[in-house]
Design a protein around this nucleic acid. Structure first.
Lengths: 177, 177
DNA sequence: CCCATCTACGACCACATTGGTCTTGCTTCT
DNA sequence: AGAAGCAAGACCAATGTGGTCGTAGATGGG
């Protein structure tokens, strides 16, 4: 037991030493958002779909309540959640958990998905038109998009540790390079 | 048709108003690195594989020479390039263009690839162990990794605009969710 | 043998984004 | 009426990114 703590401390030091440069990572906000949605999906299964307050969800995961509140507001604006103000108010999924894709959520929170700074909304390149790699990377971009679109909130809820049926149900996603 | 233009104009306004928040994007440095590698690969086809100086490459693409220099140094340290100091020196690919994957390059420049802040080097979650979505996202992470690993510098060199054979040669990459 | 050229490396800086807090106001249930 | 809860905006510290500068060391040519 003491050993476990020693290791954890060690890792914490490691992480502080090298703050873990983040390549291709999605923001913590998106993480929080996905976690909250998963929580809401789970809750709606157990009891009657009563709205959950931002504070409750925040406490369940030990994330800053005010921050989560803002995230949930964003998701509400995006039509992914429905909110209800007042006492006993809170948030609930606007649709079924299997109707909400991870891509939708991430896009709502973090903005449009572009793997390279080369690709903008209208597909032009800001590098004086001299960028030559945008076409290949665009394909990667689309593939990742497809990948994330295929995952729903329902897929996040998995009974065991070793992700079983739900994953296979989605089957294989073939992606053309 | 007029409608199309109206939409495009609308999007342009949107983009200026919101400077295009970058979700899941790789850094400009990685972009530059890939471009430089592509350039080197092309040059080694045309003439004898003479080394190209950082300045030459930088000029070809209008990117800051000093910045590119540092990127190329990084790639050299990673064993992707070989350098030769002195007059007529420069950089050359350490291996064949088809032996260098985009993943390798990006990883060398931007650091380890983790889609979520949940997943760290040692696979633990920094969210007090309360994070429940890391397992599903880990799969997405691996898929993207696989995707990028399947693309080589050689694939970036494509004759026409409409990416042809090389892409198909790679075939379809099947990714299990 | 010396100089121009080129890599190597670290310090430094401006700027944008991220994560997070605070305040204020509005809605709704009891 | 008042507490519980959402909505929204201003604000702030920390960090990462893109980029510059200066210096030191290697190397080939005249």
């Amino acid at each position: 037991m003491a050993l476990v703590h020693a290791f954890q401390a060690y890792f914490r030091i490691l992480e502080q030493a090298r703050p873990l440069k983040p390549m291709l990572r999605l923001t913590k906000k998106a993480d929080y958002g996905l976690m909250a949605l998963k929580y809401l999906a789970e809750q709606s299964l157990v009891r009657a779909p009563a709205a959950q307050s931002a504070k409750d969800i925040a406490e369940a995961y030990h994330i800053p309540p005010q921050l989560l509140a803002k995230i949930l507001q964003t998701l509400t604006r995006a039509g992914i959640l429905v909110s209800h103000a007042g006492a006993n108010g809170g948030y609930a999924l606007a649709r079924g958990a299997s109707e909400i894709s991870a891509f939708e959520v991430i896009r709502a929170i973090d903005g449009p998905l572009f793997i390279t700074s080369c690709i903008t909304i209208h597909g032009t390149c800001d590098l004086h038109g001299t960028c030559t790699i945008k076409e290949p990377l665009r394909k990667v971009n689309d593939s990742i998009k497809e990948l994330l679109s295929a995952i729903t909130i329902a897929d996040l809820i998995e009974p065991g540790e070793s992700t079983p049926a739900a994953a296979l149900a989605g089957g294989l996603v073939s992606i053309a390079l």
